[in-house]
């Protein structure tokens, strides 16, 4: 429904946002995505809130770009190992949502906390810290949110094995039949 029209609007939103925060428009389907430098992360979000009117904090999370994953299929092309930090903020009249993105180094990733801009980032950053090992400078309570204290490792890293799968192979595996080459009746 209205895909073409929607993406046109989104692109102009992405352009506006990129211009305002001094970033680059990144490719995403029907989603305005803007890349900014890591050292301008908190400032870019502050501009987004104050100048672009994106006052609603939707979510913050990360993607671990890595080769040779322990879980899931490997990427189709080699990548430089890094973290991509994502933060989605939205306005509440037209529902314009922008996903801001910044790349962080694979070793000791650190970025400024957004708590002063969006207090709601608190739990999202704690989750991101314990799941990916990303440090948020200025976060007042960098404690585990989900995991027990003293947990070793960062579960959402691609290098972190899915332990239940290690102990017992995916039980569905044995039931899988080969799909027929030619599509039969439904």
């Amino acid at each position: 429904m209205a895909d073409a029209e929607g993406s046109g609007e989104d692109n102009s939103l992405a352009n506006r946002a990129a211009e305002a925060v001094g970033g680059l428009v990144l490719e995403a389907l029907e989603t305005a995505k803007v890349g900014v430098a890591a050292d301008r992360w908190a400032e870019a979000l502050r501009i987004a809130r104050d100048d672009l009117g994106l006052s609603f904090f939707s979510w913050l999370s990360a993607v671990h770009w890595a080769n040779d994953p322990q879980v899931g299929d490997p990427l189709s092309a080699e990548v430089t190992e890094r973290f991509e930090l994502l933060c989605a903020v939205s306005d509440v009249t037209a529902g314009e949502l922008v996903v801001f993105s910044t790349d962080l180094e694979a070793t000791d990733p650190t970025v400024d906390s957004l708590i002063d801009v969006y207090p709601g980032a608190d739990w999202h950053e704690r989750e991101c810290r314990e799941m990916f090992g990303i440090n948020f400078a200025g976060h007042p309570r960098p404690e585990n949110l989900y995991l027990p204290n003293g947990f070793v490792g960062y579960p959402l890293l691609k290098s972190f094995p899915l332990l239940s799968r290690e102990v017992k192979p995916w039980p569905g595996e044995v039931d899988v039949e080969d799909m027929p080459e030619v599509a039969g009746g439904g």
């Binding site: 979510w59 899931g72 299929d73 989605a88 739990w123 999202h124």
Partner: peptide, 21 residues
């Protein structure tokens, strides 16, 4: 937030749930 690499499953799936926030 679905990040797909063209495979059978997502490379990364971020779930934004309401109650968490």
């Amino acid at each position: 937030y679905v990040v797909s690499d063209g495979g059978l499953g997502p490379y990364r799936l971020k779930i934004r749930s309401a109650s968490f926030s």
